[in-house]
């Protein structure tokens, strides 16, 4: 009788651990996703300053600048979904990258300390977003493993936990950067 109770107690305890573990992993995924969001916001906040500085020195990049401003306002408006935000970020990245290349033609701007500062903050935010995405993917993999492997799979079935897909890099980003392509645009 006592042994039976101990076994049941132990099983219950293990069950609780695994259940809590699963919930913890699920929350980690949400948490990791919001980290990407924070990093994206940080990057979007850089745009107005960047545009201001570039404007002072050039008259020729108006088209690119207004496109960047437009993308930014779209990104920060309340009703943008996460997927859209990620898409906008990709477009923004490539526009800003293009802008940075064109800026090679403006030595005064290139030497401006505000601009240099912004440029490094931009690269910083780029790597921070990459780090946040990798964290998200690690959390998703962890969660997927937990719900697909026994005994987690039992709980996952009962709780209707579904596997989540990992983020993949946009096709453009995966390509190797070729200087020729950049300058032929």
């Amino acid at each position: 009788m006592v042994i039976a109770l101990v076994v049941i107690g132990l099983l219950l305890l293990i069950g609780i651990f695994f259940y809590n573990g699963l919930i913890g992993k699920k929350n980690q995924v949400t948490n990791a996703f919001s980290a990407i969001d924070v990093m994206l916001k940080k990057r979007f906040d850089l745009i107005p300053n960047l545009v201001e500085v570039v404007k002072q020195y050039t008259n020729y990049e108006q088209g690119t600048l207004s496109k960047i401003v437009e993308l930014r306002s779209k990104a920060i408006s309340g009703n943008t979904s996460d997927a859209e935000k990620a898409l906008i970020d990709t477009q923004l990245s490539s526009s800003v990258k293009g802008l940075m290349v064109n800026i090679e033609q403006y030595p005064d701007l290139k030497a401006n300390s505000n601009f240099i500062n912004l440029q490094s903050t931009w690269t910083e935010s780029e790597e921070q977003i990459a780090a946040a995405r990798r964290t998200y993917n690690a959390a998703v993999t962890d969660y997927n493993n937990a719900i697909m492997m026994f005994p987690g799979s039992m709980f996952a079935g009962m709780l209707n936990f579904q596997p989540i897909t990992v983020l993949t890099t946009a096709e453009e980003e995966r390509k190797n950067i070729s200087a020729k392509e950049l300058f032929n645009n």
Partner: peptide, 10 residues
């Protein structure tokens, strides 16, 4: 910090 660790360990 998980994100920071990956920011360092690219």
């Amino acid at each position: 910090d998980q994100v920071e660790a990956r920011y360092i360990l690219t």
